[in-house]
Computed example of a mutant assay.
Amino acid sequence: MPEYTILTLIGIAAVIGWELGWARTGVFGSVRYWLTMVIVFFFQIWVDGWLTKLSAPIVNYNSAQLSGIRFPWDIPIEDFGFGFAMVTLTIICWIRLGPKEHR
């Protein structure tokens, strides 16, 4: 399996595991979290789609490091997993390290 795909899957599993096993902030049960993710993915589709379009790419990936699945348009599917892990980890850390009344 390609390196970027493996690292993305590890990142997703690590963030979910950390939330469910240790942090326990309850983000996955929060409507605000899921609305945040919808907003993040909406803008990611437009920006990432423009940056990675195969017809005139601004960002090039080594195809040997990807699964080869691109959706929608020409966005490597791994980018969504990476975005999920990065934004989710940031939100979890924000909640855990913030004021106690927000935990």
Score class of each variant (00 low, 15 high):
residue 22 W to F: 07
residue 24 R to C: 02
residue 24 R to H: 02
residue 27 V to W: 14
residue 27 V to K: 10
residue 28 F to P: 06
residue 30 S to A: 14
residue 30 S to I: 05
residue 30 S to P: 05
residue 30 S to R: 15
residue 31 V to C: 09
residue 33 Y to A: 06
residue 34 W to L: 00
residue 35 L to W: 14
residue 38 V to F: 11
residue 39 I to F: 14
residue 39 I to Y: 07
residue 39 I to K: 05
residue 39 I to V: 15
residue 41 F to P: 03
residue 41 F to T: 07
residue 42 F to R: 06
residue 42 F to G: 08
residue 42 F to M: 13
residue 44 Q to H: 14
residue 45 I to M: 03
residue 46 W to L: 15
residue 47 V to A: 15
residue 47 V to F: 14
residue 49 G to S: 06
residue 50 W to F: 11
residue 50 W to N: 07
residue 51 L to P: 05
residue 51 L to R: 08
residue 51 L to A: 06
residue 52 T to P: 13
residue 53 K to P: 00
residue 54 L to P: 04
residue 54 L to R: 13
residue 54 L to C: 05
residue 55 S to M: 03
residue 55 S to F: 01
residue 60 N to P: 02
residue 60 N to L: 12
residue 60 N to G: 05
residue 61 Y to S: 02
residue 61 Y to W: 08
residue 62 N to M: 06
residue 62 N to W: 03
residue 64 A to N: 04
residue 64 A to M: 02
residue 65 Q to M: 12
residue 65 Q to S: 15
residue 65 Q to I: 01
residue 66 L to D: 02
residue 67 S to I: 09
residue 67 S to G: 14
residue 68 G to R: 04
residue 68 G to C: 02
residue 69 I to F: 10
residue 70 R to Q: 08
residue 70 R to M: 10
residue 71 F to G: 00
residue 72 P to R: 09
residue 73 W to A: 04
residue 73 W to I: 13
residue 73 W to C: 00
residue 74 D to E: 01
residue 74 D to V: 07
residue 76 P to V: 03
residue 76 P to T: 00
residue 77 I to W: 10
residue 77 I to L: 15
residue 80 F to M: 06
residue 81 G to R: 01
residue 81 G to K: 03
residue 82 F to L: 15
residue 83 G to F: 08
residue 83 G to H: 13
residue 84 F to K: 11
residue 84 F to G: 10
residue 84 F to A: 12
residue 85 A to N: 09
residue 85 A to V: 10
residue 85 A to H: 07
residue 86 M to R: 12
residue 87 V to W: 13
residue 88 T to N: 08
residue 89 L to I: 00
residue 90 T to A: 15
residue 90 T to P: 06
residue 90 T to M: 15
residue 91 I to Y: 14
residue 91 I to A: 05
